[in-house]
């Protein structure tokens, strides 16, 4: 009986990456929580491979972030709170959903302006028919 904890301890030290298979790569059992976690993972940028969201990256650190997100969501945290935590660590760069603030306003204002300007141009062409 005393052998079991000893073996377990030996495994912990020697078995290589013991974090290999857990919430980093395995779904939460509650489908609603898993859906929340997935939506968040889809919008967090991998800091190692940079082009991809952590939900589609093979980098170790992306896996660590997936694990952290699933753990937090399972513990009842709101996805936005977890996003805010990660932004607090890595800055705005880590979220694919830009925060709305003065510096990012052009992202919404430029298309709006294009729509208004285009609408104005179109309206000038409509209505008065030349015979």
């Amino acid at each position: 009986m005393r052998l079991v904890p000893l073996l377990f301890a030996a495994m912990l030290v020697c078995a290589g990456p013991v974090y290999g298979q857990d919430l980093a790569d395995v779904s939460l059992s509650d489908p609603r929580q898993e859906a929340e976690a997935l939506a968040l993972m889809d919008s967090i940028r991998c800091v190692v491979c940079q082009g991809q969201p952590i939900s589609g990256s093979n980098a170790d650190l992306a896996g660590d972030m997936r694990r952290l997100i699933r753990e937090r969501i399972a513990a009842g945290d709101k996805p936005e709170a977890v996003r805010a935590m990660l932004v607090g660590k890595y800055g705005d760069w880590v979220t694919f959903r830009p925060q709305v603030k003065p510096a990012t306003l052009p992202l919404w204002l430029v298309p709006l302006l294009a729509l208004l300007a285009g609408g104005w141009l179109v309206s000038r062409r409509i209505g008065r028919r030349r015979s």
Partner: peptide
Amino acid sequence: DQGGRAQIALGSAG
């Protein structure tokens, strides 16, 4: 560091 917990806590990317 198990599971990158310390790394993420530090905001370290690599």
